[in-house]
Write a protein that binds this DNA or RNA. Structure first.
Length: 276
DNA sequence: AACGATCCCTGTTGGC
DNA sequence: TGCCAACAGGGATCGT
C-alpha cells in the first residue's frame, strides 16, 4: 500500500532516471488518471517537451519540478505504482499512463483501481491544491510535540482518524498509522484531545522509526495487486508489521492478542495488552 | 468548524 | 465448481 515510505522508496528509484531528462510525450490511456484537470489534454500538453529539474516528495505526493515552473504531480492512490522500462518492453496490465523520456526510458504508471492520479500544475494551482489541505511531511518536516498538541487539543475525533488526516501531518496511511500507535502504546480509538503531553511526545517519537523501518525494507507489499518497487521487487516490511493485518495473532511486545476494530470505515489493529 | 458518511474502482476472498 | 456479495482503502465531497 503506497504510503510515505513506499512513495519515498519510489522517489529514490526514479530520481536518477528522470532528473535531467526531457519528457518527450505523455500517453494517457485512461482519462480518469488525469481527472484533476478540467481539460483532458492539459496534462499531456503541459508536461511535453519539459526537462525534469528535480524529483521531490510531500506526504504521499511525488513532485517532479519541470522547467518553466510546472510541477508534475503523481499520487499512487491505493494500488498505483511507477515502473521504469524501455520502450517496447512488455507492459504490465493496467498500465494507465506512460511518460516517455529522452534517452530511451519510460516511466509507466500501473494502477488497477485508479484511485491514483497524475497532474501538471502551475505554482498557483499547486497553492490551490496543497494549501491548507496537505500538512507538514511526517518524515522530513515533522511538527514538534507542542505543535502536535495544538493540532490535537480539543479534538473529539479518534486519534487514528487524526493521524490519517493529511492536514495534521502528511504521509501516513492506514498501515503506518496503526504501527505508529502500537509503538507509542496508544489505543486508536482515543479521542485526540484526551492524549496527555507525554503521550503526544511518545506518538511523535514513534513516527520516524516506524517510517524509516518501512523505508529500509522497501515498503509494504500486500499481495500481487499492491505496491511494488519500480524495479519490480516487492517490499518486505509486511513481514515485520507489529499490528496491521495481525488480527488474532500475538503481540510481539506483550504477548496479548491483536484485535481489529473499524474506525471511520477503516480497519484498525491494536493490542489491548499494551496500548492504552 | 468538526465530524461522519458516502462515493469512486476492481482484484481478491469467503460464503453458499 | 461456480457465482456473487463483501471487502480493501486515499481522498473528495456532502450533510449535519
Amino acid at each position: 500500500m503506497p504510503e510515505l515510505p513506499e512513495v519515498e522508496a519510489t522517489r529514490r528509484h526514479l530520481e536518477p532516471v528522470v532528473v535531467g531528462r526531457v519528457i518527450e510525450s505523455a500517453d494517457v490511456r485512461r482519462e480518469r488518471m488525469t481527472r484533476r484537470h478540467e481539460n483532458l489534454r492539459d496534462f499531456a500538453d503541459r508536461v511535453a517537451g519539459r526537462r525534469v529539474e528535480s524529483l521531490g516528495r510531500r506526504g504521499k505526493f511525488l513532485l517532479g519540478l519541470l522547467e518553466g515552473d510546472i510541477t508534475w504531480v503523481t499520487h499512487l492512490g491505493m494500488s498505483g505504482r511507477l515502473a521504469v522500462a524501455r520502450p517496447g518492453e512488455v507492459e504490465a496490465p493496467h498500465t494507465n499512463v506512460v511518460i516517455r523520456l529522452s534517452g530511451g526510458y519510460e516511466v509507466r504508471m500501473v494502477d488497477p483501481r485508479t484511485f491514483g492520479f497524475m497532474a501538471a500544475w502551475t505554482p498557483a494551482e499547486m497553492d490551490e491544491q496543497f494549501g491548507g489541505r496537505i500538512g507538514r511531511d511526517a518524515l522530513d518536516d515533522l511538527p514538534t510535540t507542542a505543535e502536535l498538541a495544538g493540532s490535537l487539543g480539543g479534538r473529539t475525533a479518534p486519534i487514528k482518524a487524526l493521524l490519517l488526516d493529511q492536514r495534521v501531518v502528511s504521509g501516513l496511511g492506514n498501515i503506518y498509522a496503526d504501527e505508529i500507535l502500537h509503538r507509542a502504546k496508544i489505543r486508536p480509538d482515543r479521542p485526540g484531545g484526551s492524549l496527555t503531553r507525554a503521550e503526544i511526545g511518545a506518538l511523535r517519537a514513534a513516527v520516524r522509526p516506524v517510517l524509516e523501518a518501512g523505508l529500509r525494507h522497501g515498503g509494504t507489499s500486500l499481495g500481487d495487486l499492491a505496491y511494488m518497487l519500480p524495479d519490480g521487487r516487492a517490499g518486505e516490511y509486511l513481514h515485520r508489521l507489529a499490528a496491521y493485518g495481525r488480527e488474532g495473532e500475538a503481540c510481539r511486545r506483550c504477548g496479548g492478542i491483536i484485535e481489529r476494530v473499524v474506525i471511520r470505515s477503516r480497519s484498525s489493529h491494536w493490542c489491548r495488552g499494551c496500548q492504552t
